[in-house]
Design a protein around this nucleic acid. Sequence first.
RNA 1: GGUGGGUUGGCCGAGAGGAGAGGCAACGGACUGCAAAUCCGUGCACACGGGUUCGAAUCCCGUACCCACCUCCA
Length: 474
Amino acid sequence: MVFALYDTATRSVTPFEPVRPGKVSIYHCGLTVQGPPHIGHIRKEVVFDVLRRWLTRAGYDVTIVANVTDIDDKIIAKGAEQGRPWFAVAYENERALHAAYEVLGCVAPTYEPRATGHVPEMIEMMQELIARGHAYAADDGSGDVYFDVRSWPEYGRLSNQKVDDMQPAEDAPPEGKRDPRDFALWKGHKAGEPETASWPTPWGRGRPGWHLECSAMAAKYLGDEFDIHGGGLDLRFPHHENELAQSTAAGQKFARYWMHNAMLNLSGAKMSKSVGNTLMVSEVVKRVPAIALRYYLVSAHYRSILEFSEEALQEAATAFGRVEGFVTRAAELVGPGDLGEPTLVFSAAMDDDLAVPTALAEVQRVIAEGNRLLSGGASDELRSCLAAVRAMLDVLGLDPLSATWAAGTSDDGARRAADALVASLLEQRAEARAAKDFATADRVRDQLASAGVEVEDTPQGPRWTIQADAKEAT
RNA sequence: GGUGGGUUGGCCGAGAGGAGAGGCAACGGACUGCAAAUCCGUGCACACGGGUUCGAAUCCCGUACCCACCUCCA
């Protein structure tokens, strides 16, 4: 079966054929770094991380470009508000974004270009568009440059809208526009805005409009035609519609497939800064292990709205605990081994527009099989079962034994100290049990439990784990 | 007003015309000194009203409600 992807432009699942054999080029819109990322933002990162991992496993050489929009109205406003340069605000939030990538185990994009570093490319593109009759500099002296929507018959194709049905663009005052729906490629410098937020152009000083940077950077890093362009569904219009118009009007082929992830809702509404219903990644990972948050975000199909609730998050953490439990128990018995191959059912699900929920059901099925094997002790069957499970989890970025997640959880001094202490207590308990002194045995177990150490008896003897939520015991 | 998506068991969440996703929770059983973990089993859900069909959660028509976008948005 061939990988197939839902294409927003055609609104159908289409077989994927890359522009260049063996290679996949992906551009997805990163953040406007006006604030630290919330879990809705990071859902998108996780979705594209899974896409990347799956395509990589399929043997493609994957290049991912994700932009950082480091200049816009809100960043400038925040800088002014906080009494510091706009670029300080942008950089701080860019770092928070990178920290969130890392904490959730997302592989960093291949390139992550910033808008402000690509002004010359944008100027060239505007010149091209003006030469072709699809853009114009406003004649009101504002220094704005607009895209001429009426000059491009395909405008509206991506979002399936007719220009006449659209409401006027409010990204700039309408005075200089030929049509109220024309959108800004470039914004002229305004009095009161910091000088540092403007760059020279043939039309005067100014700064990038939001959409142009992506067209310019996608072309620079991925070429005139590339495979997949993605982002949150809320970017389909106007952002992606405008990008498509700019790039194709400038003579490029642009993206073959458009992939959009659905929003993450909180209290029935899209999580967003303007609604004020945001949950920062940095906060949520205090309540639940980061890998469990990732499991939660991954577990719903990327095109389904995910209605966030604390209960659902906790439930996901419990469900993932079962997965993690099998992997660690099996690895204790037969060693971590190498990654194997995903099962055919898993692969078919992933090939079908990343049907992760179906794929995850398969992981659970294989784990149930693995748990049955586990009671028989070490075996080749168990070894290959673990290898398959790990391979499938790896595709989702959820392999607990991978370098990403295993780091810092073993081999450090604290762990060795705890190991020694717990071992001596477990020895006492074993002696008590041998003497049928169960009161003493249970007291030792309770003592450990109150310290957050959970003891389980297995055919191979007792094993213990530190409960993650114990440190937050109330 | 325009363009899309949705409503599934106690909860989360798949599926898209022909016995059953999966998970969480619950209950029963096995295992255990007791637990924990694990395994086995139980639960027969598809917003509402019509229609098509041998057969509809799935297709069609209508109704209600929800969400997103219509130039700040992942």
